[in-house]
């Protein structure tokens, strides 16, 4: 079993864990965190596929560049999704705080 296959198995396990958390955990912030974990595990799988596609030229290992590019794009997209989700969660918390007790000032950053 090549090292990259072990990483593939580890990624499959993390995907299972994070999917469970995404579905079961009711708190939105923990869901976003689980999403990030899920995304990184999927990208590890991409990495494993890239490493299998690559090889070793005069001792220096290399991986298939196309999945690497896809992973970098995916990471940036995942980050954008996280930012949007976190901003939405904070705005939701503020809106919820405003509806529950109108008196206290529910500023989001103080």
């Amino acid at each position: 079993m090549v090292a990259s296959t072990w990483f593939g198995l580890g990624a499959a396990l993390i995907i299972g864990l994070s999917l469970f958390q995404v579905i079961i955990n009711p708190e939105p912030l923990r869901k976003v965190l689980a999403f990030n974990l899920l995304g990184s595990a999927v990208f590890v799988l991409f990495g494993v596929l890239a490493r299998r596609g690559g090889g070793r030229i005069d001792g220096v290992a290399f991986a298939d560049p196309v999945p690497q590019a896809l992973i970098i794009t995916g990471l940036v997209v995942a980050f954008a999704a996280t930012v949007l989700a976190v901003a939405l969660v904070l705005r939701l918390l503020q809106a919820e705080c405003a509806t529950q007790d109108h008196d206290t000032e529910c500023r989001i950053d103080d």
């Binding site: 939105p28 976003v32 949007l84 989700a85 939405l88 969660v89 705005r91 939701l92 919820e96």
Partner: peptide, 13 residues
């Protein structure tokens, strides 16, 4: 509106 934030978050996730 408050309820649309929850709807948007659920849609996004």
């Amino acid at each position: 509106k408050a309820e649309t934030f929850a709807a948007a978050l659920r849609y996004l996730l």
